[in-house]
């Protein structure tokens, strides 16, 4: 898993998952804030027709943070929503991931991925049950 992918999973964590993983972390990491956590918005973009020229669709709330561990690693986070604590913890785990990827993966990311899979599968099977097959019928009026 790349750092890019790990950050994508951290962005989908909920605050409890991050908290629990931090509480269970063997040695509480020492860290300082370089930026934030702070909340704001980003402008979302779409494409005309779905694949054409870009346009501004509307904004979405976002929180971000940058932290530095006492061991030197710098972690970033950008997450949808306004949860500053979540942004802070996500940045912290991004920093930890850089030296302890495997531990972050087994202690935290695997559980989040698992939950996301279950949620995604539920939506998919519920949607699949609404699959429809339309058919057209010929009526004999023209004969």
């Amino acid at each position: 898993m790349t750092r890019q992918e790990a950050m994508g999973v951290l962005a989908r964590a909920n605050r409890e998952e991050l908290h629990d993983a931090l509480d269970a972390w063997p040695e509480p990491p020492q860290s300082e804030a370089l930026r934030g956590p702070e909340a704001g918005m980003i402008m979302l973009r779409g494409r005309a027709g779905g694949g054409g020229a870009s346009f501004n669709l509307g904004e979405v709330t976002m929180a971000r943070a940058t932290v530095r561990l006492s061991t030197g690693e710098v972690g970033f986070s950008c997450v949808l929503g306004r949860d500053l604590e979540k942004a802070w913890l996500a940045a912290l785990f991004d920093a930890l991931w850089q030296s302890e990827a495997e531990a972050v993966d087994t202690r935290l990311l695997a559980g989040i991925r698992n939950r996301l899979d279950v949620e995604g599968r539920q939506t998919a099977v519920e949607t699949a049950a609404t699959r429809v097959n339309f058919f057209t019928m010929t009526r004999g009026e023209d004969e």
């Binding site: 909340a39 704001g40 918005m41 980003i42 402008m43 979302l44 779409g46 870009s54 971000r64």
Partner: peptide, 23 residues
């Protein structure tokens, strides 16, 4: 609310061809 909230930037254009479709 939007007018008093800072804007950090822009997203990449949304890719609707990769949508997880619900309808």
């Amino acid at each position: 609310y939007r007018t008093i909230t800072p804007r950090f930037g822009f997203s990449e254009p949304l890719d609707t061809s990769k949508m997880r479709v619900e309808r």
